[in-house]
Amino acid sequence: MLVAYTPAFLAGVASFALVPLEGLRFTLLRSALTIHFLKRLFEVLFVHKYSGVMEVETAITISMSYFLSTASMIYAQHLTSGLPEPPIDLKHFGILLFVLGISGNFYHHYLLSELRTEGGDNKYKIPHGGLFDLVICPHYLFEILGFVGVSCISQNLYAFSYTFGTMFYLIGRSYATRRWYQSKFDNFSENTKAVIPYIF
């Protein structure tokens, strides 16, 4: 997973050296993307406990996807430099959503990591704590909120398009995860939704 996340993180870091300051919105966007992938690297090193190994080809594909998406989002924001600001400024709301998203995502990743013990019982269990009693994938819910925040910071079409793609992908994964838990655990609560509390 270090291979998957490092290039995107480096793209964010490099943008500070390669692209001059172009206003608060641009600085906030590249900061948010850099922090997002720094958090992912931190989790790989200190939080996650993996049950398997990812094939190199898969890791490279994911890595290129994250890298290109990050670099493209930063470049798209660069292209808006000098254009009039949007009539409704959402960047402060975006910061709030981003911080909420990244914090909630980290917290639920930590709860998932606590289900596995070093050298102990690594059987799958139904997660609990946080929002896990309401949705089986709260970490995806907060990931979506974080990217909605990034889109609100950016307020350009590319960022919103990327967020919609990410949203539909994570909703699909959440749905599949819920079905998997239903098939494996007889005591899985039907009231626990996939990703949106009380709704889906």
Rank of each mutant, 00 (worst) to 15 (best):
P84T: 10
I95D: 02
N105I: 02
Y169A: 06
T177Q: 02
P127V: 09
V13C: 04
K39P: 04
G52S: 14
K125D: 03
P20L: 08
L18H: 03
T27M: 13
R25V: 13
G104K: 01
G82K: 04
V148K: 02
V148T: 05
V19F: 14
A59F: 05
V44P: 03
R173S: 07
I102P: 07
F185Y: 05
R178H: 05
S51A: 10
G172M: 02
Y175M: 01
L170R: 01
I62P: 04
E55G: 15
T166Y: 12
V44N: 08
G94C: 12
A76Q: 09
M54A: 14
I88H: 08
V135P: 04
Q77C: 14
A194T: 06
E57A: 11
F164S: 01
S154W: 06
A59T: 10
A17Q: 11
E143G: 11
G82W: 09
F46Q: 03
K123H: 09
E55N: 14
I199N: 03
R116K: 13
T80Y: 08
Y181E: 11
L29H: 00
G149P: 08
Y198K: 15
A176D: 07
R30I: 07
L79N: 07
V148S: 06
L33A: 01
L145A: 06
L115I: 14
A17C: 15
E85V: 14
S161A: 15
R178F: 01
V195W: 00
L134P: 03
S113W: 03
I136K: 04
P7A: 09
G129C: 05
V13N: 03
I144S: 01
F42A: 10
F93W: 05
P197S: 03
A71Q: 06
P138M: 04
S65R: 13
I60T: 09
I153A: 08
D133P: 00
T166V: 14
N122R: 14
E118Q: 12
S174L: 00
M73C: 14
T80W: 09
V195Q: 02
D186M: 11
Y162K: 04
F16C: 11
P7E: 12
A17M: 14
I144G: 05
K184R: 15
V195F: 09
Y181A: 07
L96A: 12
L68M: 15
C137I: 10
G129Q: 11
I144P: 02
M54Q: 08
E85G: 11
V13R: 01
V99E: 08
T192D: 00
L38A: 13
